[in-house]
C-alpha cells in the first residue's frame, strides 16, 4: 500500500564477496532505516545476501524509453568496439 508516508525504495543485494550489488526489487518504507529492515525481511529470507543497499527511487534518474533510438541504436553498428578482432596466441590458452 503506497501512501505519502511510505515512499518507494530500490533494493540492491550483494550475494557474496567480490560480486557487485544487483537490483532485486523495490519496497515501501517510511525512511532509510525501515527500508533496510524491510529489504532484509523481503529479499534475504533464503540466504540471498551479505550486503544490502537501499536507494530512494526518486534518487534514480532514468533514461527516457522514447529516446532509445537516439541513445542506443548508434552503438549497434560499431562492431569494432568489441575486442573480437585480435588474434590470441596459442600460449595464452583459454581466456
Amino acid at each position: 500500500m503506497a501512501t505519502p508516508n511510505t515512499p518507494l525504495w530500490e533494493v540492491f543485494i550483494r550475494s557474496r564477496n567480490g560480486l557487485a550489488h544487483k537490483h532485486v526489487g523495490s519496497l515501501h518504507a517510511s525512511d532509510a532505516t525501515m527500508a533496510l529492515q524491510a529489504a532484509r525481511d523481503l529479499y534475504t529470507r533464503r540466504g540471498e545476501g551479505l550486503s544490502i543497499w537501499v536507494v530512494p527511487s526518486t534518487a534514480i534518474t532514468a533514461s527516457d524509453p522514447a529516446e532509445k533510438g537516439m541513445m542506443f541504436e548508434p552503438a549497434e553498428s560499431k562492431i569494432y568496439r568489441h575486442p573480437t578482432f585480435y588474434e590470441v596466441p596459442e600460449e595464452v590458452g583459454h581466456m
Binding site: H28, Q37, A38, D41
Partner: peptide, 12 residues
C-alpha cells in the same frame, strides 16, 4: 498487517 512489507517482517 498494515503493509505488505510488515506482513513479511512479522511472519519472519
Amino acid at each position: 498487517a498494515p503493509m505488505l512489507e510488515e506482513d513479511m517482517a512479522l511472519s519472519n
